[in-house]
Write a protein that binds this DNA or RNA. Sequence first.
DNA 1: CTTGCTTAGACAACCTGGATGTCATTGACA
DNA 2: TGTCAATGACATCCAGGTTGTCTAAGCAAG
Lengths: 159, 159
Amino acid sequence: MSRSGADLALLLLGGFRSLVDTATAELARRGYQDVRPVHDFAMRAIAAGAGNASELGRRLSVSKQAAAKTIAVLQERGYVTRDTDPRHARRMRLQVTPLGFEVLRTGEAIFDELRDQWERQIGPAQLENLETHLTELVGDPPVRFDTPGWMSRDLGEPI
Amino acid sequence: MSRSGADLALLLLGGFRSLVDTATAELARRGYQDVRPVHDFAMRAIAAGAGNASELGRRLSVSKQAAAKTIAVLQERGYVTRDTDPRHARRMRLQVTPLGFEVLRTGEAIFDELRDQWERQIGPAQLENLETHLTELVGDPPVRFDTPGWMSRDLGEPI
DNA sequence: CTTGCTTAGACAACCTGGATGTCATTGACA
DNA sequence: TGTCAATGACATCCAGGTTGTCTAAGCAAG
């Protein structure tokens, strides 16, 4: 039976949400409360070299102000630090703390476990196939995550 | 090469967004400006029998107030009508207008075209396979669409 | 050295799309 | 008839973005 195009979209959304929701819940269960996907993305971007708010905003495709808010949250929870570069007074240096890296590693581990679970469910070859074809269809995973309300608001440029 | 679990999640998101973004843009191009996925979902739910705001809210997993707001927008744009049931003074009867159905049909057509495009890209058997396995993994497409900000906020019950 | 451009980051105001809480009305049912 | 459940309206709050304005730092060119 061939599904409609809309169903296909929902199926993809369902898969994504299933993974992310489970991962978030599991992360909370393991002691990292209140870590949202967006925090993971932000920390990953910081670890990858986004050293300041503007740069982080650029990488996440949000305004620098929005990025600054996220940074404030991460800092408050001890996941990143913000110290000023002694040589460039106005420039801050963002760094992921050991605790932050702990969260990142745990998150990755959980996602990998979920992937293993899927692999057991449909078989390694099938999952591999699924990934290959999806990659073919949509290209490499987008770096940007999302902006809230995009289901209802204006969409901006496609990923 | 086997991707990480997190990449798998992003791949699914990418596929979904790719379809939905393109569909929304195309819908706008064909003259239906400002139709967002959430409107499509809402109209679909109304057409399927959600006759009032509370019921619509239940079906979309949002509060009745949020549903009422969506209804107001749809009504303003002429996609649904709200007339009071003469027999039950306080109960409204929501109905999708011909224009609303036009949008729904056009949206479906666009999604189906996109699906055809994918089919040509990776082959019918592969797409069928992809759908079958995804269905196996996440079950039937969820009726609920989403709530905005779920990437960053509390998630509620999983789909 | 000074002038001028670019950029970081802070602050404030605003918008959207939800959630909550309260309330009057209303229909159903014991 | 009295009580209960539920609808829908209204007001308020909240989160997470946006834009706009401002100051200060860095850099390059005259």
